[in-house]
Each structure stands twice: as C-alpha cells, then as structure tokens.
C-alpha cells in the first residue's frame, strides 16, 4: 500500500478576500443542505411560537366586545400588528445558547476549536440558513392568517416599508443572536446559561411587544423599556412593517439597533476570550 500520485502541493493563487468569500459560500451551502434535512422540525418549531396569534385572538375579541375598537386599535389594526409580531418572532428565533451549552458540556466544541475559523461562524451559518428554510412555510402561514383576518387588514402599506422592515428585522436578529451568544459564553462558567435565555424569553413576551402593543402598558413601563433591547427586537420592526413608526424616528431606531448589536457583539467576544481558557474539553 503506497501513496502513488506524486504530490507537489500547488497552492492555488487565491487572494485573501476570495478565500474568505469561499469559506462563507461553502459554509452556507452546506448548512443550507443540512437545514433542509430538518425541515419537518423547523415547521414544528414554527408552529410552537403561537403566542402572537393567541394574543391576536384575545385582543380582537376584546375590540369586538368593546364595539369595534380598543385603545385606538380596531380589529384590522390588531390583526396586522400581531401577524407582524408573529413574523418578527419567527425571524428572530435563536438557539445558539442551547448549541453552545451542549457543545461545551459534551466537549464537541473541541473539533470546532481546532479549525482555523472561529466556531461562532458555523453557529451563525446554521441560523441564517435555517431562516431561508423557514421562509416558505412562514409566508404560507401569513397568507392563511391574512385570509382569516378581519376585512381591511393591511399588513404593510407599501414595498418600501416592507424592505425597511427586512433591514430592521435583520438588525433585530443580530441583537438577539449576539445577546444569546453572551448567554452562551456563560456556559464556560455555569450550567444555567439556557435558564438565563429562558428568563430572557419570559421577559421578552411582555417587554418586546408580543403580549400587547407597548402603548397598552403603563407609561412608566413604556419609558423604561426604551433603554432595554427588548422593543428593538420585535416592537419597532413591526411598527416599521405596519407603517406606524413616524418616518422621522426611522433613522434613530435603526441606529440604536446597530448600537445594540455592536455593544452585545463586543461583550460576547470578550466573554468568549476569557471563557475559552476555562474550557475543560470534557471527555472529548
């Protein structure tokens, strides 16, 4: 048994940037194929996030009982708001903390650490490609919801608002992803990182605007919540989608979203740097 082919390593001449581009292209292609294999699971998870649709039922019921409108929202407004909330929640689903907790505890992070690419990019690739697998059933369900919704429900006034929403929801996803990465890096120290993420989720139902439009909360809650990331993940993107956010505030909201991404990203990177030294590579 011998290696016959003469081997002269011939490094293909590729520039730095095209090498990086190829890394991302291949990672995304492969993860897209992987996620497609899990489409059944993804549809199940899509259906799990029922809260916005349940709240839509409750608030429309309340508006009807109240003679057609409630706090300035009529049935159609509620329908548009909560369908948007549902869409926003679907677009910002993140499970990286579970992934990191598992890989750190089981030691499977090891093989990822020995590759010349930061493991976070693989997590990122899996999340982004999952979104593309999720798109078709999500939009199909939105179609059904819109068809069932009260007459005159306008999800988004025009294409511009929809495109702006896509931009804003991408930033929202990044806020959520970096925040969850922070929780994930805590797995280096504690077993409760996933519990922290669940705590976030419980808070987010109320403070991000999934339970009710934030206008329905007491003034003090509305004021305080501005200084937290919560409304920037659901409430503001949905307001942009439904055209309720005044154009004058658009840049401010997008700018603040970027700031949150930056802040959380830096914090996550720093925690990773000090946490990885504690990594025990258990059993792996």
């Amino acid at each position: 048994m011998t290696l016959q082919t003469p081997l002269e390593p011939k490094p293909d001449k590729m520039s730095r940037s095209s090498l990086i581009w190829r890394k991302f292209k291949v990672l995304f292609q492969v993860w897209l194929a992987h996620m497609t294999a899990y489409r059944g699971e993804i549809i199940i998870w899509m259906l799990v996030g029922m809260v916005p649709l349940i709240m839509m039922g409750v608030w429309i019921g309340k508006a009807q009982a109240n003679g057609g409108s409630q706090g300035g929202f009529d049935s159609a407004d509620f329908a548009a708001y909560f369908i948007g909330t549902w869409l926003a929640n679907q677009m910002t689903v993140v499970w990286i903390v579970w992934e990191m907790d598992f890989q750190i505890r089981q030691g499977t992070l090891s093989s990822k650490l020995l590759r010349p690419i930061h493991p976070i990019w693989e997590f990122f690739a899996s999340h982004v490609t999952e979104r593309f697998v999720r798109f078709p059933p999500v939009f199909a369900l939105i179609g059904v919801a819109w068809w069932l919704a009260p007459k005159g429900t306008v999800l988004t006034p025009d294409l511009t608002h929809f495109l702006l929403f896509l931009l804003s929801i991408t930033l929202a996803f990044l806020i959520r992803f970096t925040l969850s990465s922070i929780f994930g890096t805590l797995s280096f120290w504690t077993e409760s990182s996933t519990a922290l993420d669940e705590l976030y989720y419980v808070l987010a139902i109320f403070l991000s605007g999934t339970f009710a439009p934030l206008e329905f909360f007491p003034k003090v809650v509305q004021d305080v919540v501005q200084y937290t990331p919560f409304p920037y993940i659901i409430s503001y993107p949905v307001q942009i989608l439904t055209g309720k956010l005044p154009d004058s505030r658009l840049l401010e909201v997008l700018g603040l979203q970027c700031l949150w991404v930056l802040a959380f990203g830096v914090l996550a990177a720093w925690l990773w740097k000090i946490g990885i030294k504690k990594y025990g590579a258990v059993g792996a």
Binding site: D12, R115, P116
Partner: peptide, 12 residues
C-alpha cells in the same frame, strides 16, 4: 467545508 476552512487549493 474543511477544504474551504483550511484554505486548501482545488488541485491539492
């Protein structure tokens, strides 16, 4: 994936 990550040329 490994080819891309380890920057292995196509020929090699």
């Amino acid at each position: 994936v490994n080819q891309a990550i380890f920057e292995i040329g196509d020929l090699e």
